[in-house]
Amino acid sequence: MVKDRYARQILHWGAEKQKLIEQSSLLIAGVGGLGATVSQLLVRAGIGRLYLVDDGHLDWPDLNRQTLYGEKDVGLAKLPLAKERLNQINSSTEIVEIPGRIDADFQVPAGVDGVADCLDNYQSRFELYRAVSAGTYFVHGGLNGNQGQVLTLLSGKSQPFEEVFAGAVQPQGTIPVTPDSVVIIAGLMVNELFSVLWKTPKLLDRCLVISLDDFHIDFMDI
């Protein structure tokens, strides 16, 4: 590893927390809008291993916010592209591809330290949460236009995701999503994922609700 690669962040959080990041593995469900930036920031920070799950191909409307991809990638499968780009950013992170859609048969690999819900639909989110083993942290992110939320649940202890979000079915039509809102919510998710790895989550059973319309931030207890 290039000397001093993580020097600036170690100045902030210290060598011990850096070591925890480098020894940790996370599952990133979806490498689209949220997942492209979440995985990128984690790799830049030196995460040890990332499991990436996705089944999509890049389309032109993805380019406004999916920060790992460019014009030449349109039409290609996102998962190998994400792995290639993440490896280019930091070759010390092990990237494990899990191609396919998250459904009732999906299994979270044993030993992951946390799961990042970067999905774009509730049905897959419900299936993902069911696949998370007890004692594993689940960091959810979601957004619609200028509104977004981040929430951490601890499987086996928190209310199940499907109970909290019961009734929150997918809206009809395409959901509006902007470059800035995605990157902001993704950044907040990564901040929380670091806290999860350090066993000090800030949003456990506490939903952070953000409105970029008026820069309003609130907490909703779950």
């Binding site: 509730y122 957004l143 977004g148 929150a168 999503v177 939903c207």
Partner: peptide, 10 residues
């Protein structure tokens, strides 16, 4: 009571 329309996108 809390009323919350969550964002579904990602």
């Amino acid at each position: 009571l809390a009323f919350f329309p969550p964002g579904a996108g990602g």
